[in-house]
Amino acid sequence: MISAILVMAGIGLVLGGVLGWASIRYRVQDDPLVEKIDAILPQTQCGQCGFPGCKPYAEAISKGEADINLCPPGGNDGVKRLAELLGVEPKPLGAGMEPKPKAVAVIDENTCIGCTLCIQACPVDAILGAAKQMHSIIAEQCTGCELCLPPCPVDCISMQVIREDVATWKWRYPMHMMKRAA
């Protein structure tokens, strides 16, 4: 009887010790939910959701302070994936938040005066240039956030929609006639 109690107590102590050690050793520092939400957001860093970037929006969603349908670049597809992750009902994008086709900013090099304001505005450092030197956009890095448009004093930046080419072309959803089952 005594030995049985001792054995059980011993096992309990050992397992408890292991669990206690593991909880310290493998502690998760960051909120994993924020990371998961952030992974779904398109990282345009455009601020259309009203937060200064995708990460702050993700944090607000995880705290329940923001709705999931505030991200136009993510589109309805993004909302759906957020809803799946959070286990809530998907909803259409917020009013006035129409997803736009993907675009890149283009600087009209003849008009640019080299003021560097757009460089400071770009959230992903996708604009190259220096004071009084012509600025240029690195198209591959541009997220199409449009944050460089308002600061430009000479309005020399425009958005160019990315057209699909042979490499990025996608097979369409098959539109086949479905015969009515009699």
Binding site: P123, V124, A126, Q141, K170, W171, P174
Partner: peptide, 29 residues
């Protein structure tokens, strides 16, 4: 349908790569 699904998945993977890159660049900025 399989071709459609494959090209959709490829596009998502492309988008994901681009998003990851944008995240890294934004965090660095």
């Amino acid at each position: 349908f399989f071709r459609y699904a494959k090209s959709e998945i490829w596009e998502r993977e492309r988008d994901k790569r681009e998003a990851d890159q944008a995240r890294r660049r934004h965090e660095f900025k």
